[in-house]
Nucleic acid binder design. Structure first.
Length: 865
RNA sequence: GGGCGGUUAGCUCAGUGGUAGAGCACCGGCCUUACACGCCGGCUGUCACAGGUUCGAAUCCUGUACCGCCCACCA
């Protein structure tokens, strides 16, 4: 393979090789040589394409990113050396709430989508107390300004870590291309009926004041209490129910019990009256009601939880909504249509004490009222229960009826399950996560958010003559205009002054869920639409690397979009990284104050050292943060420098590899290469590192020691030539095997004696090594390990005798099976020099034993000073 | 409540039917012309627990416990 630089390559080994400074040296050279540029002349079969996860730029990179991005880079480097043109872009996720919050605080502004774009706007020097309102396009500009700085810092870190990304191919999830394709994808789905708008009860965060999707929920254990409440029956009796949300009694539209529940069967079809508000509500039967829970009867409110929504829909109940988008109780006129009460003024008097309050305060208040009225039976019984939260939110979600955009998912579930099975998962069991998620889907994907910083929907609506918006009269942007912002752009046939005017138009105020954009990262990176030639060469991609916590979001939504747009899987492989754990097995997170700055780690242990630690965490494996392993990796890199210096320092003469131990070494190395190639193809990079490392240490500790004298010429030129050639062959293979893991040390060493970059060198092959050593040599293989074993016994004796290793051995008696003793001539000379052995005797024996007789200590011991 | 992983030396982890392993840590020793950012040696185990299959189980099966994670209609 060709490479772009350093074609002059005299062997030149530094006196004191060191790791320090290699990151700066080589990142600069790789960049100037364009080493990792994607070669778009290659056909799809010759390409290995990666759908890199775009890190969130408004946060900071942490050690978990370093961990998982290293895994991807290992695979990228391997595939590149296998001859693939590696498509390895980098995206920046600057879309969404985290950035929105950061921009608000940093510049002291607030997005007001109703404002027109002001091209001369400049943010305040210092953020003031009152945020300055700005238009959405201005807000997005500020965002781009801030994130561009973050992105530079991220890129520096990634380069320092040695990621072999093609830095000419970056994208941002709020970038023009991402906006264009997000809107285009939306419009096409809309055109095909796969996207639709609906006014329906939706999960709602009252602080962010936006709808959220099922995928963004999380359960949190919260303290709560069962309140036993009585509802009056017409016959003067009562129905008792338990509720954790008594404040929703004014929103109660029915009571429900299980159809088979004998206690309530007589009541089905009758009406009861809500306490405090005197609303008549029916008693209904539904199979979801659990006779075991509470009293067996429950009140249905619009809406307390998702079960209420099911009951409301399936039982055909009316809506009596009381919670507003900001979470407070809205004003209600009791006695008005929909709010009928037996005593409207009493109901009003009670309700007025709740209006304007948030749910928790309203709950406390209504408990007082219920106590006074006698409708609260006994004391509230405290419990702990799981409550749904928006994953970024601070207060429990409410369910609020609102107009939202959805993408159809429910009708594609079976096909998506099949697509999941078409992919290879690393590790395989992660596929179960996807299947669990798909099987548990409760509804279509809500993609609209009532936020500002994100990709807007390219849609306007007609405004009626009376000034109300006609949501059925959609004005959809044409594809050639994209990307557009409907809050400043004007639909065809209208003028700007018709915005929000009678008979004019009004913009869709919402933006897309961040996953609606992230779900097309393969299309954004691969040039879908604007570069069909590139797209054909990279899509469907080979690899999606990501963490397991976003299988239900990023992975799933990307599969959905790919299915709907292209009818294929988006990638052939999904490699799922684990988390980095504290030593106490908890997930590392900022809130625990245990986050280490990645750059400091890289500087302390060297990028190769940190990569070594990361590479030891296999696919899917949660891995402990362990600086000890980074030190081990660093030592491996240093050892590689020094062993290479030895191998290259006196590399003449070379010649045929004839000595048995030399051929044995290469025989073992050839097997290692074969197995490592298979392992790497299967994303088992951890095994490659482990085995290569292990054999490399054997190579250093035993083989190098055995052949040291010989390669210096002590046993003649021919045997020296065999040793030198074997050393160079082995070194070349070791460097290439370790190049994905230790890109800096291996590149440095490669530059001492080989042309080009090790990262563009061909991955070693079994055949190549066996060619160099004229085929496999099992006898040599056995001889090498036998020699190493005897050498170990000699060292042991010296160590136990507390004598220097250079102490001569006067006499060696080797007890072993005849079949092994017969190998001795193959390595006798090497053994004599490396162990400083004077006399060797052998004794046929069933077991293995070595008697070592050290030379007497020479001269009188020196007196300490 | 359902599911997925895990449990092996003080620590981090390999090991998927054939005599329990590595590195780190610890202890002892060694200036050995590649490396003192080094080298050599040593110590360390009810393979979570209980049954079962097998000539033989860390490994396969059943169950249990604990840890972590994912999911769930949570009144």
């Amino acid at each position: 393979m060709s490479s772009g630089f350093d074609l002059n390559h005299p062997i030149s080994v530094p006196d004191k090789p060191a790791l320090e400074g290699l990151e700066q040296k080589w990142t600069a050279r790789w960049e100037s040589a364009g080493l990792y540029r994607f070669d778009r002349a290659k056909s799809r079969e010759e390409v290995y394409a990666i759908d890199t996860p775009p890190p969130t730029v408004s946060g900071s990179l942490h050690v978990g990113h370093v961990f998982s991005f290293t895994h991807t880079d290992l695979v990228a480097r391997f595939q590149r050396m296998r001859g693939k043109a590696v498509f390895y872009p980098m995206g920046w996720d600057d879309n969404g709430l985290p950035t929105e919050r950061r921009v608000q605080n940093y510049f002291g502004v607030r997005c007001d989508p109703s404002l027109p774009y002001d091209s001369s706007f400049a943010p305040p020097e210092q953020p003031g107390k009152q945020p300055v309102p700005v238009s959405r396009p201005n807000f997005i500009e500020l965002c781009a300004r801030l994130t561009v700085e973050d992105e530079k810092a991220f890129e520096r870190l990634w380069r320092h870590l040695g990621l072999s990304v093609d830095w000419s191919m970056t994208y941002a999830t709020i970038g023009r291309r991402a906006q264009h394709l997000s809107q285009l994808s939306f419009l096409r789905l809309l055109g095909r009926g796969q996207a639709y708008q609906l006014e329906a009860p939706t999960l709602w965060d009252i602080d962010f004041r936006t709808a959220v999707a099922q995928a963004e929920l999380e359960d949190r254990e919260q303290p709560g209490a069962y309140h036993r409440i009585r509802f009056a029956r017409a016959d003067g009796g009562f129905v008792e129910i338990d509720t954790t949300r008594p404040e929703l009694i004014p929103a109660c539209v029915a009571i429900v019990a299980h159809p088979d529940d004998q206690r309530y069967r007589p009541l089905f079809g009758s009406e009861v009256v809500t306490p405090l508000f005197g609303a008549r509500v029916p008693v209904k039967a539904h199979a979801l009601a659990d006779p075991e829970k509470g009293s067996g009867a429950a009140m249905i409110c619009t809406f307390g939880d998702v079960t209420d929504v099911v009951w409301w829909r399936e039982l055909g109940l009316p809506v009596r909504a009381i919670i507003q988008p900001n979470g407070t109780f809205k004003a209600v006129t009791w006695g008005a249509p929909g709010w009928e009460a037996t005593d409207p003024s009493a109901a009003q008097a009670h309700y007025d004490q709740l209006a304007g309050l948030p749910p928790t305060k309203a709950r406390a208040r209504i408990v007082e009222l219920l106590k006074q009225s006698g409708d609260l039976l006994g004391d509230p019984r405290p419990i702990t229960h799981a409550v749904k939260f928006y994953e970024k939110g601070d207060r429990p979600l409410e369910i609020i009826t609102s107009r939202q955009w959805f993408i159809k998912t429910m009708e594609h579930r079976e096909r998506l399950l099949q697509r999941g099975r078409e992919m290879k998962w690393h590790p395989a069991y992660m596929q179960t996560r996807l299947e669990n998620w798909i099987n548990g889907l409760a509804g279509d994907w809500c993609i609209s958010r009532q936020r500002f910083f994100g990709v807007p929907f390219p849609v306007w609506y007609r405004v009626r003559e009376d000034g109300t918006v006609d949501y059925d009269a959609r004005l959809v942007a044409t594809e050639d205009r994209l990307p557009i912002d409907p809050s400043t752009d004007v639909p065809h046939g209208f003028t700007a002054d018709q915005r929000d005017r009678p008979n004019g138009f009004s913009a869709d105020p919402d933006i897309m869920d961040t996953w609606a954009t992230s779900s097309i990262t393969p299309q954004i990176a691969g040039g879908w639409i604007e570069d069909p030639d590139l797209f054909a060469r990279v899509f469907p991609m080979d690899l999606r690397p990501q963490a397991h916590d976003i299988i239900r979001t990023w992975l799933f939504s990307t599969m959905l979009k790919s299915e709907l747009e292209h009818g294929t899987i988006p990638w052939k492989n999904a490699a799922i990284s684990g988390f980095v754990l504290d030593p106490d097995r908890k997930k590392m997170s900022k809130s625990k104050g245990n986050v280490v700055t990645p750059l400091a780690l890289l500087e302390e242990h060297g990028s190769d050292g940190v990569r070594y630690w990361a590479a030891r965490g296999g696919p899917g494996a949660d891995t402990a943060f362990d600086p000890g392993q980074m030190r081990v990796g660093r030592r491996l890199a240093i050892k590689l420098l020094n062993a290479s210096k030895f191998a290259l320092s006196k590399s003449e003469p070379t010649g045929p590899i004839t000595a048995a131990v030399d051929r044995g070494l290469l025989t073992n190395l050839a097997r290692l290469v074969r197995e490592s190639t298979e392992d790497f193809e299967n994303y088992q990079y951890t095994r490659v590192l482990e085995r290569t490392e292990s054999f490399f240490w054997f190579f250093c500790d035993n083989y190098l020691e055995l052949v040291k004298a010989r390669r210096y010429g002590d046993h003649g030129a021919e045997l020296a030539a065999s040793a030198n050639s074997a050393l160079l062959t082995a070194l070349s293979a070791f460097l290439r095997l370790l190049a994905p893991f230790l890109p800096f040390a291996t590149e440095e060493i490669w530059s001492w004696w080989r042309p080009g970059s090790v990262h563009k060198a061909a991955w070693p092959t079994e055949a190549e090594i066996l060619d160099a050593s004229c085929g496999e040599d099992d006898r040599g293989y056995l001889a090498l390990f036998f020699a190493a074993e005897i050498l170990g016994e000699i060292r042991k004796k010296k160590s136990e005798s507390q004598r220097p290793l250079k102490t001569p051995v006067a006499r060696l008696v080797i007890h072993a099976a005849e079949s092994r003793l017969e190998l001795l001539p193959e390595f006798e000379q090497d053994l004599r020099s490396s162990g400083l052995v004077q006399e060797i005797n052998t004794l046929a024996s069933d077991g293995f034993q070595v008697d070592v007789e050290l030379a007497p200590e020479s001269g009188p011991p020196q007196r300490p000073e």
